[in-house]
Design a protein around this nucleic acid. Structure first.
Lengths: 129, 129
DNA sequence: TTGTATTTACGAAATTATTCGTAGGTTTGT
DNA sequence: ACAAACCTACGAATAATTTCGTAAATACAA
């Protein structure tokens, strides 16, 4: 079994920033975070330290300001979270989730085409009736 | 703004049972729950009482055993959870979520067809390029 | 060098979620 | 009526998450 990832909401906010910006200091992350919520600097610091302890982040401590990098990949994390949602919220039915997602977020034509193309690809590779 | 629903994991387990079985007593719910986890009866009771306080469940207390019913609908709850996931995990892109969902859960041919049909329907109603 | 700013480390408070023991009431069977 | 079984209410312990104050270390500037 590969280690299972379950970031909390706060941790996910930080991961999103790190995935977006790449390796960053606590200050870098905190400045982004401040825009959307108000939390003290040491709160951000503490969170990132905890994430480091948990093995979600690695850090380079060779400079005065430590530089943190996400260890868990965005893809893998997204995959696990989606899987969990399918299991816990949609009783194991991926297509149910898909239709919910499409139903309430009107995707534009390009997006819809992209998804259809994706489906066609999948069908080619699918032989079970 | 419609009240925002954020059930915890435990609460979601209970909601799933109630959506499936319809109005149920604590004992009914607990018997289902017991199969997958081990928790005491009063734990289930307490959770359902809290959910009642929060307005997630209503109850009929006219009998000895109170009968609980989910107030929040499955559809609406699924919708909110999906929306939250799109916002927090997929930076607002529904199609990203859709493709993750399809990528890791090989749906069978029927499911894929169902989804394609759904997409065709949507396209008819979509005029923005 | 001396003070100012910035940073990390640490501990603990505050908040939220989960668990369960115990007490007291109601129903049921004998 | 009495006991056994079952139910709710309540309070509190435990655990997990989020928050931040304070102290010590490091860098920076005057």
């Amino acid at each position: 079994m590969t280690t299972t990832i379950k970031p909390t909401d706060s941790e996910l906010e930080i991961l999103n920033i790190l995935w977006d910006k790449g390796p960053s200091t606590v200050r870098d992350v905190h400045e982004v975070l401040e825009k959307s919520k108000d939390a003290g600097y040491t709160t951000t610091l503490k969170l990132m330290q905890i994430m480091h302890d948990k093995g979600l982040l690695k850090r380079d401590a060779s400079n005065k300001s430590h530089v943190y990098t996400a260890i868990v990949s965005q893809e893998k994390t997204q995959g696990q979270l989606v899987k969990r949602m399918i299991d816990n919220v949609f009783n194991g039915s991926a297509s149910q989730l898909v239709m919910q997602a499409l139903g309430h977020h009107k995707a534009n034509k390009e997006e819809l085409e992209e998804i259809k193309k994706y489906l066609d690809e999948m069908e080619k590779k699918t032989n079970n009736s």
